[in-house]
Design a protein around this nucleic acid. Structure first.
Length: 581
RNA sequence: GCACCGAUGGUCUAGCGGCUAUGACUUUAGCCUUCCAAGCUAAUAACUCGGGUUCAAAUCCCGAUCGGUGCACCA
């Protein structure tokens, strides 16, 4: 029996949503093309993401290169950590995970370098598990695609394995753009690349994929969110750390979840809410969606909390489509270290703090001429003294083994109360990271229905069952937004049809015109690509200037005036079904 | 990557050493047709690729590629 994945992919291939890449040359695993309808669908999904995160949250979008330089990925840990140690049999050329071969001999093979692993393999005389041949030196197989920048191959470049680093690297510029004010965020929608050893699961695991990521920089002392109230009552399917131990999912409001400490803080919970709204809006079923918290050992050591949005797919089970993490200051610190640049931001206190400070002011006008080259050292020595040590008439110092006496007139000191208005901190980062391809596949699967069509039509004949394939895409994401059909392929009906097509196109609506075959067939053709509205021109159109508009999901029809057809369709794309109610 | 299984028009499929390679649906052109695909006529369109065995290979053998399943892997 064909499962849902098979059905969806068959439709996707046939109608131009998804194609295996390079099919002409036999194809290559891990790559997919978006066909005409798929590319449009994906764009619409991305634009809804922009509407939520860029327009409504105000996290502007940037665009960084897809190739990164080595420093970036040394800082991010991808050069060192984003790899597996392999060793190859010299005889049968079978590759093995080097750390797995020695796991019975040493305690923590996953922390060992390739050289160390080679040594262990040599000392213990480990042979190829397949043919008993000698094993070669262990080497790191990095999951990043490597390339060379410029001629000569001297500078290494890597295809980015995530879009996130672009925002981190631009941090100093972003700080200025947002005029030194936390919180702020930047987003990026773009391609990322991972040279998977063995990609399977079709469109779920790709070697080249599209990510939509936001990096939101917040003040670590305040992880509340000003708009949290708006989302506190949203109920989500939460699969917490505890829940995973007991095997229990809980429906809970975000307000409760934060209050009970299940979600670390408001800001993260807020991101979960917007993620939920995004996924529902593009057509993922809320019934087949959950938020799963990373287990302690699954989370990166620096992460404060991490939740994945997962969708239930027929074949693959629960699939991660979004990761939402509080990454703390890890990334900025790593880049600060690697680049030797200060990546902190000055934050003001609500009320200035009064700080008592002991200040020593050596009088260089006296010390300078007296000590000449040593004056600097003397001054520094004085600055480190306490008020007791400075309070005598004569102050004793030892500089370079030499005893020096200084008159009290040469140095002034006092305790002052200073107002401190703020401090430099390294922001924490909240990172929602979306796998656009997986989301696009998910909504196709969740929108795919095969149903018995006869029940729906009013004057249907009893008896014969007939299958109708329909993609119940939200009108907002449907690639083709309206279809125009002359009831019969006759000139007197075709002409008003093409006029309506023009009208709709001028209104920015993607519309298809179809006059081939029977009307029923044309409805079905459009049902299976999710076209939400079909407009049919009949003889009544000629006499009274009305057409029928048919709703994809209910197959109901209403008559509407040609004169305001563009407004009507436009409204319905954004406020679904209203003229059918 | 390994092991097992598979690969025939756009889709599904028949063929299992000997043909001009089945059939259905789709698509296209035309006819018919006043609202939910499969009425009529016609057309287009396929043996995954490379070797080998044989007088003869879609069919048998080997390899590659792609796909599925299990193992491994999965920031």
């Amino acid at each position: 029996m064909a499962d849902k994945y098979e059905q969806v992919l068959e439709l996707a291939k046939r109608r131009g949503f998804l194609w295996n890449s390079f099919e002409l040359y036999g194809g290559t695993a891990g790559f997919f093309d978006y066909g005409p309808l798929g590319a449009m669908l994906k764009r619409r999904v991305e634009n809804i993401w922009r509407d939520i995160f860029v327009i409504n949250e105000g996290y502007y979008e940037i665009e960084a290169p897809t190739i990164g330089i080595e420093d970036i990925f040394i800082a991010s840990g991808h050069v060192g950590g984003f790899s597996d140690p392999l060793t190859e049999c010299q005889k049968c050329h079978e590759p093995f995970r080097a750390d797995h071969l020695v796991k019975d001999i040493v305690d923590n093979p996953d922390t060992m370098s390739a050289e160390q692993l080679t040594e262990v393999i040599g000392k213990n005389n480990i042979k190829c598990p397949e043919c008993g041949g000698r094993l070669g030196d262990a080497y790191e197989f990095n999951l990043m695609f490597k390339t060379a920048i410029g001629p000569g191959g001297k500078r290494a470049g890597y295809l980015r394995p995530e879009t996130a680093q672009g925002m981190f690297v631009d941090f100093p510029r972003l700080v200025k753009f947002y005029r030194d004010h936390l919180p702020f965020g930047a987003t990026q929608i773009g391609k990322a690349y991972r040279n998977e050893i063995s990609p399977r699961q079709g469109v779920i695991r790709l070697r080249e994929f599209t990510q939509a990521e936001a990096e939101i920089f917040i003040d670590p002392r305040d992880k509340t969110h000003p708009k949290f109230k708006e989302v506190a009552d949203i109920v989500l399917n939460l699969f917490s750390q505890e829940g995973q131990v007991s095997g229990e999912m809980k429906k809970m409001t975000l307000g409760e979840a934060v209050k009970n400490g299940i979600i670390a803080h408001e800001f993260l919970a807020y991101c979960l809410a917007r993620t939920y709204q995004f996924l529902v809006r593009v057509g993922v079923s809320s019934e087949k969606m959950r938020f799963r918290q990373h287990m302690k050992d699954e989370m990166a050591h620096y992460a404060a909390d991490c939740w994945d949005a997962e969708i239930l797919s027929d074949r693959f089970g629960w699939v991660e489509v979004v990761g939402i993490a509080d990454r703390t200051d890890f990334d900025l610190k790593a880049h600060a270290k690697q680049s030797q640049k200060d990546l902190s931001i000055y934050v003001s206190y609500d009320t200035p703090k009064k700080v008592e400070k002991f200040v020593v002011k050596p009088d260089m006008g006296i010390l300078g001429p007296k000590f000449k080259g040593k004056a600097g050292k003397v001054a520094n020595a004085l600055k480190s003294l306490t008020s007791e040590q400075l309070s005598g008439d004569v102050i004793q110092l030892t500089i370079d083994g030499e005893k020096i006496e200084i008159n009290k007139d040469s140095v002034k000191f006092e305790t002052v109360t200073e107002e401190v208005h703020g401090e430099n901190i390294i922001p924490h980062v909240i990172e929602p990271s979306f796998g656009i391809d997986r989301i696009t596949y998910s909504l196709l699967e969740h929108s795919y229905f095969e149903e018995d069509a006869k029940e729906k039509v009013e004057d249907a004949e009893e008896g014969e069952e007939e299958k109708r394939i329909v993609l119940r895409l939200p009108p907002e994401v449907a690639p083709v937004q309206a279809a125009v059909f002359p009831l019969l392929s006759r000139d007197e009906l075709i002409k008003p049809g093409t006029e309506i097509v023009d009208k709709l196109r001028k209104a920015g609506i993607l519309v298809a015109f179809d006059d081939s075959g029977t009307i029923g067939r044309r409805y079905r053709r459009n049902d299976e690509i999710g076209t939400p509205y079909s407009i049919t021109i009949d003889y009544q159109t000629i006499s009274d200037g009305t057409v029928t508009i048919r709703d994809r999901d209910t197959m109901k029809q209403v008559r509407a005036k040609v004169s305001d057809i563009a407004d009507n369709i436009y409204d319905m794309l954004h406020k679904p079904h209203h003229i059918f109610e």
